[in-house]
Computed example of a mutant assay.
Amino acid sequence: MTSRSGAPVVVAVDGSTSALEAVRVAAREAVTRGRPLRVVHAFIWALHGVSLEPAPGAPDDAGFRHQAEQTVADAVAEAGKIAPDLTVTGTVVDGSPTPVLLAEARDAALVVLGSRGLGGFAGLLVGSVAVQVSARADCPVLVVNGTARADGPVLVGIDGSALSTEALGVAFEEAALRDTGLVAVHAWNIPVPPSALLPVADSFEALAGEEERALAEALAGWSERYPDVPVRRHIAYGAPARILVEESSRAQLTVVGARGRGAFTGMLLGSVSHAALHHSHSPVMIVRHVRQD
């Protein structure tokens, strides 16, 4: 689903510790996929008309342009420590981070971002670049927040929307790549409390049964395609965002569609994907749509 033959894993760097952790994760992701790694730094200073050269009397290695190139070089070296045999290239691209990364995503297998960069405001859990790129990129976006770990299942949230079906396919693929299991979470709610339904028990049980059947149907085709991926179904009554975040504490990766059934027109991300992006205990992969080769 996400093959894009020859496409690299792209990771964004800005000199922050969050970006450097994203480089480490991206290097592992590239190895897992058998892909090259492309390190990208969006160089915004050229847009502001400031001098990019060292000030008079300053060392030759001073200046904004050199600092950007050094940031990329440091990231490439860090990736080499994680995966010495990985093909890694680095580049400085003039432009603002969001449009630069959206352009990179058109030809990438995966874009990896740190949760916050150097420009983040204090108190923000996830930076604006990560939110905007996740919501608009042409390939899956992996935001490295929470704890990156090698064990645990892949977690995916399912709500019956077309985009969650795409996310489910990506989650199966990720579980197969990682040789681990899949936990499919479907949280459901009703507009009135169960106590308002008549008869209470019969109505609630009937609704719960419908939700269980819907989840089983959603999983059936994918389980046939990935027979070696063990699947655990988790159906819960309650707020989808809360349940997904709770489950993420035991996962190595959380996969969600950018927007589900309940998203309002004009929103960059739906409420569940937004909550996962900000509060997940594991790295989060946001799927907006997937183009096939």
Score class of each variant (00 low, 15 high):
residue 84 P to L: 01
residue 128 S to T: 03
residue 267 M to Y: 14
residue 116 R to Y: 03
residue 259 R to F: 08
residue 128 S to E: 10
residue 84 P to C: 01
residue 168 L to M: 14
residue 176 A to T: 00
residue 57 G to Y: 07
residue 235 I to F: 15
residue 69 E to R: 07
residue 278 H to K: 11
residue 216 A to Y: 11
residue 119 G to R: 13
residue 35 R to W: 03
residue 225 R to A: 14
residue 213 R to S: 09
residue 162 A to N: 00
residue 167 A to P: 00
residue 261 R to W: 01
residue 269 L to R: 04
residue 207 L to S: 14
residue 105 A to E: 08
residue 256 V to H: 01
residue 167 A to M: 01
residue 96 S to W: 02
residue 173 E to A: 10
residue 257 G to H: 10
residue 285 M to G: 02
residue 189 N to W: 13
residue 125 L to E: 03
residue 118 L to G: 05
residue 20 L to P: 10
residue 174 E to F: 03
residue 223 S to N: 06
residue 284 V to A: 05
residue 58 A to Q: 02
residue 52 L to A: 04
residue 30 A to R: 00
residue 137 A to E: 07
residue 73 A to S: 15
residue 256 V to I: 00
residue 8 P to E: 10
residue 195 S to W: 07
residue 99 P to L: 05
residue 210 E to H: 13
residue 20 L to S: 12
residue 20 L to Y: 14
residue 55 A to H: 07
residue 253 L to R: 14
residue 38 R to M: 12
residue 159 D to Q: 03
residue 78 E to N: 11
residue 30 A to F: 11
residue 42 A to N: 01
residue 276 A to V: 13
residue 62 A to S: 08
residue 230 P to R: 02
residue 230 P to Y: 04
residue 23 V to H: 06
residue 242 R to I: 12
residue 66 H to T: 09
residue 90 G to R: 03
residue 15 G to M: 05
residue 278 H to L: 07
residue 180 T to E: 02
residue 195 S to F: 08
residue 61 D to L: 15
residue 149 R to F: 15
residue 174 E to G: 00
residue 232 R to D: 13
residue 79 A to W: 02
residue 261 R to V: 11
residue 214 A to D: 15
residue 156 V to I: 02
residue 292 Q to Y: 07
residue 26 A to L: 05
residue 19 A to D: 05
residue 205 E to P: 14
residue 70 Q to T: 06
residue 30 A to K: 03
residue 230 P to F: 09
residue 93 V to S: 02
residue 289 H to K: 02
residue 225 R to V: 03
residue 54 P to V: 06
residue 217 E to K: 15
residue 197 L to F: 12
residue 31 V to Y: 09
